[in-house]
Structure formats: C-alpha cells, structure tokens
Simulated assay, not measured.
Amino acid sequence: MLLLLALILFAGAIAALGAAFAKEQPQGLARALEALERSGHAGQELVDEVDPPFAERILAPFQARALTLGRRLTGADKAERLRRRLDLAGNPQGWTVDRVLSMKVLFAVILPIVVLAYGAMLGGSPTTLVVIAIAAAALGFMGPDLYLQNKSAHRADQIRRSLADAVDLLTISVEAGLGFDAAVQQVARNTDGPVAEEFSRVLREMQLGMSRSDALKAMGARSNVEDLNTFVGSMVQADAFGIPIGQVLRVQSSEIRVKRRQYAEEKAQQVPVKIMIPLILFILPCLFVVVMGPAVLNAIDAFNGN
C-alpha cells in the first residue's frame, strides 16, 4: 500500500508537470490562424478570462517562478550550452531553453517531496531522509541534462550508422545527372532518421536565402559526429574551389564506409569488457549458489553430526 501510494504521488506530480508544459503559445502564422478561428467564440473567451483554467491560474505562475530561479542558478552562459545540447539532441518537439530551465527547478522541488513523503510513511530516520532528499534534488536538477545527453548520444550513433547509405544515395543521384540540391532532396525524401532531417533542414534554409556553404556549415555545427563534419568540410571546399561534386562524393562515400566498419569493430571489441561487470556481479554469484550450495549444506550437516 505504501509503495502504491508513493507511485500515485509521483504520477500526480508528473501529470501536473505535463499539464504545465503541454500547452505552448502559437507563434507567427499559427497564432494568426488561431485568432481567426476564435473570432466566432468571443463569448467563450470572455468566460475563459473570468474563470481561467487551473493550468493558467496555478501552474503557469509556478512555471514562471521556476524559470526565473533556474536562470539565476544556471548562470548567463548556461543558455548557450543548453541550446547547444538541444541542437545535438535534434531539438525534441516542445523542448526549449526556458522549458529545460524550468523543468530542472520543478523536478528538483517535486522529486524530494515525493521521496520524503514515501520515506516518512516507511518510518525512516530524519538524517537518512535529509540525505535522500538532497540526492533526489540533485538528481531532479540534473535529470533534463542527463536526458538530453542520452538523446544526443543516441542521435549521434544513428547518424554514424545511416550517413554512409545517405551519401551513397546522394552520389548515385548526382552521377545520374541531378544537381546537388535535387540530390539532397531525394535523400531527404527517400530516407528517414536524423540524417534525412538534417538534409531537409539544409534545403529549407537554402530556400529561405542561406547559401549552400552556410547551410552545410550549420548542419555540421548541429552535430558532433566527426564523419558528418568531414563530409560537410569536403562539400564546402568543393563548392568553393569548383571541384566536381560527383568525384568528391564518391571518395567521401568510400571513406565513410571504412570508418563505419572500424567503428563497428571498435564497439565489438568493447563487448567483453562491458559484459564483465554484470558477469561478476550477477551471473557468477548465482552460479556459485547453484553449484556450491548443496556441498555447503552437506558440510554443515556433517559438522553438526546429522
């Protein structure tokens, strides 16, 4: 029952946070369209102004205060580092710098409260509860950073795996007679994953007036994958010096495939070292219990004279 109550409290806290962060204010054209759609519902808007929902009355001010406190705690340069982490993580839907800062504060406050409530129901000592609450606050404050770091590592691994195939398709398209922009469009349309998303963003930036070199450099800046940065550098130099892009793409495709095979071999060589920890901590003790358990019991009976 105590565990069920603690889970209910934690689920309620997560639901409150979700309600606080679920609704975003529309910007630009979406905001204008929403205003036109609401033009025939002025009466309902007046009712909402008189009696705003719970999220606007309670959770929105709490979120604003958490954002202010998060800016004070993180410092002036933290926003740029968070923006960099969001770029490396692929800019998850709904995640902004302000939202991450407010989430850090809210998790640092709510998680210790839930832990203290659960520890008090179990009857823990005050010293233990204080230590656990401090650890929970630190974990809650660092939780969004850990999530973004894990998301960045997973995205970088996906880019390493799919970049060679994307460059192969880009090479085939260019050698078939398409221009570089049309070949990039083919890659973005016929593939999926982080590489396709990055190529789609490159096309959108070029349509907005950014030069090809600047769009490719921006794509390289949004990733920490060495193979992608090397590919971007080669494309920028080929565009600057007038080198045939098909030849450069053919060389880059071959090099990226070699690096991908080397990366796979490196990961395979790390498996014996990584499997040693669960082997020693979990598998071998169980094996010793099964193999040595009967012998130990027989020895105990023999010493007791049974």
Rank of each mutant, 00 (worst) to 15 (best):
L2P: 07
L2C: 05
F10R: 06
A11R: 08
K23Q: 09
Q25I: 12
A30K: 14
R31M: 12
E34L: 14
R38I: 08
H41M: 08
D48N: 12
V50A: 15
P52G: 02
F54L: 12
I58D: 07
F62K: 06
F62S: 11
A64G: 13
A66F: 00
L73N: 03
L73Q: 10
L73Y: 01
A76D: 11
E80P: 03
R84Y: 13
L86T: 08
G90Y: 02
G90R: 13
N91I: 04
T96W: 00
D98E: 11
D98K: 09
L101Q: 03
L106C: 14
L106F: 03
V109N: 09
I110E: 11
L111H: 02
A117T: 14
Y118D: 10
M121L: 15
G123I: 05
G124K: 07
T127F: 11
T128W: 10
L129S: 13
A133E: 00
I134K: 01
G140R: 00
A153G: 06
A156W: 08
D157M: 09
D157G: 12
Q158R: 15
I159V: 13
L170K: 05
L178N: 00
G179Q: 05
V187P: 01
N190C: 09
T191N: 04
D192Y: 05
A196P: 01
S200W: 07
R201P: 01
V202E: 08
R204T: 14
Q207R: 15
D214Q: 11
K217V: 09
G220H: 01
D227L: 00
D227K: 02
L228G: 07
M235G: 01
F241A: 13
G242T: 08
I245A: 06
G246R: 03
Q252W: 01
Q252F: 02
Q252Y: 02
S254A: 11
V258F: 13
K259L: 11
Q262H: 15
Y263L: 10
E265S: 11
Q270A: 13
V273H: 14
I275P: 03
I277C: 07
I277H: 10
F282M: 10
L284H: 05
L287M: 15
L287V: 15
M292I: 02
M292Q: 12
G293R: 06
N298C: 03
N298K: 13
A299G: 14
N304K: 15
N304L: 09
